[in-house]
Amino acid sequence: MGMSQVFPTRLSAILTEIEQLHPHGNLQLNDSIVNSIYNSAESIAQQVVNQNEQPRTDWDKRIDDILTSRVFGFPSMLLLLGMIFWMTVAGANVPSAMLADTLFWGQDRLTELCNVLHAPAWFHGLFIEGVYSTLAWVISVMLPPMAIFFPCFTLLEDLGYLPRVAFNLDRLFKKAGAHGKQSLTMSMGFGCNAAGL
């Protein structure tokens, strides 16, 4: 096909024709078109889809109704998130204390070692009291909450609850010009602000 082909009708001619057919372009065409399509879809669906009466108890839907209902939505959400919060804070205390004890017992031993070897004071100060004890603190404070919080959150995510939290909070967040999804990152932020951001 070459460019030399002369088109029998030009596009502009068609456009003029259309302009004449409905001069103001306001036959409410779009609405009417959408309506026709929707009605057709509805009638076809009615002909071919059969929703049997009395479906088995749909647990998905039931749980959904409770978790995202107006009345129980917020309390159940606060309860659940509160529980995780509490589990993280309270549950982390025990392993935290254990880790701290172990690691600082290690520091004492290292100090003794330094004394035996007559290591210079700056060495002890820099490596044992500096690097080692900082590391020990960070690990004993951060690791247990993370080890509890993240599996819990992953579990909730796999259960599909997190999107529902986002759904619940969407209205509130919209008022602040944000999106419901951001509640999730915010609650992550309880654990560590860096992660939340």
């Binding site: 076809i44 002909q47 071919v48 889809v49 059969n50 929703q51 049997n52 479906p55 088995r56």
Partner: peptide, 12 residues
């Protein structure tokens, strides 16, 4: 418990 009659759909 939703059944879709694919043959009827195909016809339509």
């Amino acid at each position: 418990n939703i059944t879709v009659n694919t043959e009827a759909l195909e016809k339509i």
